[in-house]
Design a protein around this nucleic acid. Sequence first.
DNA 1: AGTTTAACCTGGGTGC
DNA 2: TGCACCCAGGTTAAAC
Length: 270
Amino acid sequence: MPELPEVETTRRGIRPHLEGHRIVRLEVREPRLRWPVPDSLPQHLNGQQIRAVDRRGKYLLLRTDEGAAIVHLGMSGSLRLADPDASAMKHDHVQADLESGFCLRFNDPRRFGAWLWSENPETHPLLRDLGPEPLGPDFDGEHLFRLSRGRKAPVKTFIMDHHNVVGVGNIYATEALFMAGIHPGRVAGRVSLARYRNLAGAIRTILSEAIDMGGTTLRDFINTDGKPGYFKQSLRAYGRANLACITCAKPLKSIRLGQRATVFCVHCQR
DNA sequence: AGTTTAACCTGGGTGC
DNA sequence: TGCACCCAGGTTAAAC
């Protein structure tokens, strides 16, 4: 599921139930996630009040006075609020019971997600070298242009590398390149400043739209309140291989770039 | 140092 | 029904 809009939607969904609330019991049912869940995680969270639920790229930070739980949803993870007495579902790997009587449940069939602990998450190796937030002030066409000089990777691979900008996954990279009219296989170092300005704008627009609509729903994504997102209906290129381009009606082409499915219009994207 | 590839997993869909 | 195979939102770490 989770690209940045889904993570942000999740953050907004869980935040009111976590911020200012106390965790009374953390249960790790299955510690074998992307990395083993540290044995010390319960002792860091038990009895602590959540001070903030923040997001950095696709990482969620559950902050206490002592540090933060670093949570990643991987490919198939989701967080939802539940009644702690309701029986756990298959793949509910982590559960945080709150003093309020709610509990937060982390479900992740593929176990590519993560629950880690850091006393200073900003300096954690996973967060330290991340590029700017696409919706923040440090991201624009100049930034992409500057970082891309001399780079031979395809522009799609380049914008999906979170050292360059965070939160642009396969769906939104595909969509943004379609919107900007840029061929996804074009060498990143040979894209002009004007086109990077266009692309940065497209990335911002696409992500903002998706967040406004509550995130894309694909397969196992479920919003924290259980309602699906509605962005899938507005995808212009992703998942539309061989279907007609919405601009020129020619069939969209599908290739693989960096082992990811890549759909684009040969006619509209140069 | 940049780029490519393999790996971590489960489950759903397809074709025989 | 069963089985073999392919595919999927992400990201690291090893290999070139």
